[in-house]
Computed example of a mutant assay.
Amino acid sequence: MRDTLKVGDRVQFAYEVPASKTVPGLYPEAKEFSAMPAVFATGFMVGLMEWTCMKVLADHLDEGEGSLGVHIDVSHSAATLPGQTVTVDAECTSIQGRRIGFYVRAHDGIETIGEGRHERIVMAWNRFEAILGKKAKAAGVAPLAPVKE
Results as ranks from 00 to 15, higher is better:
Thr80Asp: 05
Phe40Asn: 03
Gly116Phe: 02
Gln12Gly: 13
Pro37Asn: 11
Glu16Cys: 14
Glu115Asp: 10
Leu68Pro: 00
Lys6Asn: 15
Thr112Ile: 15
Thr22Ala: 05
Phe13Met: 11
Ile121Phe: 09
Asp73Thr: 03
Leu68Trp: 08
Lys134Leu: 08
Ala124Arg: 14
Glu16Gln: 14
Pro28Glu: 10
Ala19Thr: 15
Gly109Met: 03
Trp125Cys: 02
Leu61Lys: 03
Pro143Cys: 06
Val17His: 08
Ala142Tyr: 01
His118Val: 06
Gly133Asn: 00
Thr22Asn: 07
Phe102Gly: 00
Glu63Ser: 10
Gly43Arg: 09
Phe44Thr: 06
Gln84Val: 01
Ile95Met: 04
Trp125Arg: 04
Gln84Ser: 03
Arg99Glu: 00
His107Ile: 05
Trp125Asp: 07
Ala78Leu: 05
Gly140Ser: 06
Val17Cys: 09
His71Tyr: 14
Phe13Lys: 10
Thr52Leu: 04
Leu132Pro: 00
Gly97Ser: 04
Ala58Lys: 15
Trp51Gln: 13
Ile95Trp: 02
Phe44Ser: 06
Ala38Met: 03
Ile113Asp: 08
Gly66Ile: 10
Val74Asp: 03
Thr93Arg: 00
Glu91His: 09
Ala14Glu: 14
Arg10Ile: 02
Thr112Pro: 02
Trp125Gln: 03
Ala58Ser: 11
Ala78Glu: 13
Gly25Ala: 06
Val147Ile: 10
Ala90Lys: 10
Asp89Gly: 13
Asp3Thr: 14
